[in-house]
C-alpha cells in the first residue's frame, strides 16, 4: 500500500489499533500482529498499589516496533487532558498524544471547545497532537489550524459499532483537510472500514470491534484487508451512480435479433 506521514513519521499501515478490552495478552498480541498496525493506543491510569504484581500492558509489547499513541481518556477538561499528556510524555515512550475529552458519560462524545483548547496548549509544548473530535468539518479545520498533526473524527460514539452515521460530513472533512484524517470510534465491522477508506480518509483507529469480536485475531485480519480494499478503491476511483442500466457489451448494431 502507499505510504503516508504523521509529523515526521512515515507509516506503511493505515490501521491504528487500540489495546483495551482484549480477552488476554496472547490474543491481544496476535491480533496486533494480524492487524499489521504500527501505531498502538493506550490510556494512562493510576497504578493499583494493592496489586503491583498485576502485569503492565507493556510487558507483552516491544516498544521499538511501534509508535505509541497514549490518549487522555478520563479527562473532562482541557486542563485535565494537558496533565495526562504531560504524564504520558514523561514515560519517555512517545510524544504523540490523542486528545480525548468527554463531558458526557453516556455518549462519550468529545467536548469540542475543550479539545481545541488542549490542542493549542499541547502543540505549543511540542507534542504531536491527534485530537479525537466529532465529525464536524469546521471543528476539524479549526484543529488543523491550531497545529494538530492529524484530525480524528468519530464515525459514531465510542464502542457502539454503529458505523459511519454521517458519510457526507466525513467526505467534506477529507476534501478540506491538509492533514491526515483518521476515523476514530464507532466502526463495527469490515464494511464500515471499507466505506471510511473509500471516502478518502488516511486511516482508521479501532479497538472495540476487534477486541470484542468473537475471534479478535481473525477480525484484526479482516479489518486489515478492508483497509487495503477501501484504499485501493478510493485510489482507483469508483464509477458514478446512475439511475438506469447500461449494458456492458455495447455495440447495439451487432445484437442478434
Amino acid at each position: 500500500m502507499d505510504t503516508w506521514k504523521i509529523g515526521n513519521r512515515t507509516l506503511h499501515s493505515r490501521f491504528f489499533i487500540g489495546t483495551g478490552l482484549f480477552p488476554n495478552p496472547y490474543v491481544q498480541q496476535e491480533a496486533i500482529r494480524a492487524s499489521g498496525a504500527e501505531v498502538l493506543t493506550f490510556a494512562i491510569r493510576r497504578i493499583n498499589l494493592e496489586q503491583t504484581e498485576d502485569d503492565s500492558i507493556l510487558q507483552h509489547i516491544e516498544p521499538e516496533q511501534f509508535q505509541f499513541l497514549p490518549n487522555t481518556s478520563g479527562a473532562r477538561t482541557a486542563e485535565e487532558a494537558v496533565r495526562i499528556a504531560r504524564l504520558a510524555r514523561a514515560s519517555g515512550l512517545s510524544d504523540w498524544i490523542k486528545v480525548e475529552i468527554s463531558a458526557n458519560e453516556r455518549t462519550l462524545l468529545p467536548d469540542a471547545l475543550e479539545t481545541l483548547k488542549a490542542t493549542e496548549i499541547l502543540v505549543k509544548e511540542g507534542f504531536t497532537v491527534l485530537p479525537y473530535i466529532s465529525d464536524d468539518p469546521i471543528m476539524c479545520k479549526r484543529l488543523e489550524e491550531a497545529g494538530a498533526a492529524a484530525v480524528m473524527p468519530g464515525a459514531s460514539p465510542i464502542g457502539t459499532g454503529l458505523g459511519i452515521l454521517n458519510p457526507y460530513h466525513l467526505g467534506l472533512i477529507v476534501e478540506e483537510a491538509k492533514v491526515p484524517v483518521i476515523v476514530d470510534a464507532g466502526l463495527g465491522t469490515a464494511s464500515d472500514v471499507v466505506q471510511a477508506m473509500e471516502l478518502g480518509v488516511s486511516g482508521v483507529l479501532m479497538n472495540t470491534p476487534v477486541a470484542k469480536a468473537r475471534d479478535p485475531i481473525k477480525m484484526a485480519q479482516a479489518m486489515r484487508v478492508a483497509i487495503e480494499a477501501g484504499r485501493l478503491a478510493y485510489l482507483a476511483g469508483r464509477i458514478p451512480k446512475k439511475k438506469y442500466a447500461s449494458a456492458s457489451s455495447g455495440l447495439e448494431a451487432f445484437k442478434l435479433s
Partner: peptide
C-alpha cells in the same frame, strides 16, 4: 503523589 502507568485503551 501520583504513580501512573500505561493501560489498555483505544
Amino acid at each position: 503523589i501520583e504513580l501512573v502507568h500505561f493501560v489498555g485503551g483505544g
